[in-house]
């Protein structure tokens, strides 16, 4: 019985995810199918990529840091994104930002973010013997620093540029250019392939550093590899749609809650499916049910933020 239940839950989630995808594709579809399907399909593909990247990166991050409250956002990832955008608008102006080809902007963002985060990990692991708490603490301080710097520059630029920038700061799940989708798919696929053989080690990492070493896991190597993958995934998803990091918390904690097992082979797909359901069904309902477009990220962040507060309060009681 215990071996069957995770599979049943996963099947149920997959069914729901499939249903939300179909809903997203056909609801309110007026006009020619050969226009609607590719158009919505592209949007859907972007949402799927984001759901996968956000859910998987959050679960991986929480496993290697041994906590279930922190997310990559705590490492200052969203602040880094804002900083990079602000710096660009500050240096070249809002017009240049808008006219820059989307592919170039995406690649630039992704490369800068992966580069900076890898640098940060390398520096911390090399010098401080891999204390994750220190790493996270530095992430918080680093985030505040970047946010303040970005805030300063935002006050210095002219109002037109600021409007352009503000638009880029909120996640938008609108149509994404096909070349971007292709690049992101390849990058995320490769990153996921790196994780696949590590699944049993990840389960052992749940026990914490000392027991994991005692059981023969090469802790330092595995953790650096996993954090590298997290950096890649968060960077890709942020560069695609902007910062949505509380959403990962929501998907990951729901997955822990409903999955009757701790094994990553089951928890990772569950978190990803939950993320797909949330993003795709949410977007469909908002676009066609209520007829407005861009507020999904705000609603998701609101729900995710509430979950974060609840977890924090419950954790404090224990």
């Amino acid at each position: 019985m215990t071996s069957l239940r995770p599979r049943q839950v996963l099947l149920g989630l997959a069914g729901l995810a499939l249903f939300s995808m179909v809903l997203f594709m056909v609801w309110n579809a007026k006009g020619a199918w050969d226009f609607v399907l590719p158009f919505r399909g592209r949007k859907l593909w972007g949402l799927l990529l984001c759901a996968w990247a956000i859910a998987v990166s959050t679960v991986l991050f929480q496993t290697v840091t041994g906590n279930r409250i922190l997310t990559p956002a705590i490492m200052g990832f969203d602040a880094l994104y804002q900083m990079v955008q602000t710096l660009f608008v500050f240096a070249f102006g809002g017009f240049a930002y808008l006219t820059l080809p989307a592919e170039l902007r995406f690649l630039g963002n992704a490369v800068v973010m992966v580069g900076l985060s890898t640098l940060l990990f390398r520096w911390l692991f090399g010098r401080h013997g891999g204390s994750l708490h220190l790493l996270v603490l530095v992430g918080i301080v680093f985030g505040v620093l970047l946010r303040s710097l970005a805030g300063l520059m935002q006050r210095l630029i002219n109002p037109n540029d600021f409007v352009v920038l503000q638009d880029a700061m909120f996640a938008s799940f609108g149509a994404i250019a096909p070349t971007l989708l292709l690049i992101s798919t390849i990058v995320l696929g490769l990153a996921s392939l790196v994780i696949l053989p590590l699944l049993p080690q990840l389960d052992v990492l749940l026990l914490g550093r000392t027991p994991a070493i005692g059981l023969g896991v090469n802790h330092k190597r595995t953790v650096s590899l996993v954090l590298g993958v997290v950096a890649v995934m968060v960077s890709v998803s942020t560069a695609l749609v902007g910062p949505v990091l509380f959403f990962g918390l929501l998907a990951a904690n729901l997955a822990y809650l409903i999955m009757p097992t701790h094994r990553h082979a089951a928890v990772l797909p569950a978190a990803a499916l939950l993320a797909v359901i949330g993003l795709v069904a949410g977007q469909a309902v908002l676009e066609h049910g209520f007829g407005f477009d861009t507020a999904l990220s705000i609603i998701i962040e609101f729900a995710g933020g509430l979950v974060f507060l609840i977890l924090l309060l419950r954790g404090g009681n224990r």
């Binding site: 929480q62 041994g66 906590n67 279930r68 389960d203 052992v204 749940l206 026990l207 914490g208 000392t210 027991p211 059981l215 822990y256 701790h262």
Partner: peptide, 15 residues
């Protein structure tokens, strides 16, 4: 030994 995940006794021993 502090564990963040929720494990049963049998899960732990299986590790």
């Amino acid at each position: 030994n502090h564990i963040a995940a929720r494990l049963t006794v049998r899960d732990l021993v299986a590790f």
